[in-house]
Design a protein around this nucleic acid. Structure first.
Lengths: 212, 212
DNA sequence: TCGGAAGATGACTCATGGTCATACTTTGAC
DNA sequence: GTCAAAGTATGACCATGAGTCATCTTCCGA
């Protein structure tokens, strides 16, 4: 047996347990209201022990989000494989994206906060590398859909406009969700977001098809 | 002289002084790093005195943002008066919006945070009313541009789609700015945001003209 | 001149992220 | 089996910062 191999596995396991507990707490009550002691209590450890596995509360949050986003990317990649048209792939992607962010009450808020402040956070190098990796994946997934549509002749988008459209698309999705968190009644939120994204998407795709 | 009239004015004046100082500090260093004592020191008051004028640090922040947004709306409204086409008004609005948010380093971050969490903040009724008032103003300004374009026959947008397009438009603007805070180098940020917004806007307006 | 109201103070409380001296447990070399 | 080093865990403790409150000062009208 390699030296310390089992220990490593156990450590990794404990890390995951902590993340799982933190995830539940964060998504239920939001980032700020959850204390590190809360997380520690939930996994039956002392607060100090948490800091053996993570460098800060912010890092725990970052890891939770990255795990989720990684999972999301894993689920999204297969949508290219069915041979569907780009419009359908687009729509499917948008729906998955919205579903992803609506599945837990606080997820989007945390994600947006993370996006807004990621540059100022003092995260370990590993975590920063993960951020870059997942960001690149996100970028390439969306760009691929545009490329796919161009290749299939569905969109007449110029290659140099892909990046702009990608930003517009992401901006649109994220912006609409934030907007609906701000305006309107809580009770109809999910429904409104879904329907609004659907409509925007329709217009967006029509626009893509018509642009020459 | 009405009883206490001067005192009232003085109180209002001091409120404004505090807000001005807070604004400067927040925009320079961001919300979290600035302490209430910092603000107090800057206006040569004690911390306790600050709480005679505001109920919480969050309220100070909300008031600062609302003042700025109110000013923005004041500046934006005259753009309808020149008799320009809807496309131009659109572009001008978008540029003013971007300029507004890029004029101070931290403003957009604070604004976005505010949007994301406004519902959970425990603000006094007056402040909440102001939020509603300014939100409605924002909504109606953008909607008016769409309506103006329809009336002038520039866009063939259906009336029932105005709301969707308004959301798309806002989402797009806010989303693009957030996205660029997250990705890419700090040094080229403003420039990238402006150019990207320009491109998106071009495509958006073209789309509006073509939709039938 | 006096009493009450408004304005102002800063020491204090309290919550919370993060640290550290200490102690317990496991491992592997001998 | 023994022991030292490495790894794991603890919780009292520290620093910080938002918000409070007993107390004091200033102002104003009667």
């Amino acid at each position: 047996m390699a030296p310390g191999e089992r220990r490593k596995r156990e450590k990794e396991q404990r890390r995951k347990t902590i993340l799982k507990a933190a995830r539940k707490l964060f998504f239920k009550r939001g980032y700020n209201p959850v204390t590190v002691s809360d997380i520690a209590k939930k996994v039956e450890l002392s607060k100090g022990a948490i800091y053996l596995y993570f460098s800060s509360k912010e890092e725990i949050c970052a890891q939770v989000l990255l795990d989720d986003i990684e999972k999301f990317h894993g689920e999204v990649l297969p949508i290219f494989e069915g041979g569907a048209g780009a419009s359908e792939i687009f729509a499917e992607f948008a729906h998955m994206y919205v579903d992803f962010f609506l599945k837990d009450r606080e997820l989007f808020r945390m994600f947006m906060n993370f996006m807004l402040h990621a540059n100022n956070l003092n995260l370990p190098d590993d975590t920063n590398k993960r951020i870059i990796r997942e960001t690149n994946k996100a970028v390439s997934v969306t760009e691929n859909i545009f490329q796919y549509g161009i290749d299939k002749g569905e969109f007449t988008l110029r290659k140099e406009d892909i990046r702009t459209m990608r930003n517009t698309f992401w901006g649109m999705l994220n912006g609409i969700i934030s907007l609906h968190l701000f305006i309107g009644r809580e009770s109809t939120r999910e429904e409104r977001i879904r329907s609004n994204v659907n409509k925007c998407l329709g217009i967006f795709i029509e626009g893509l098809k018509k642009t020459e």
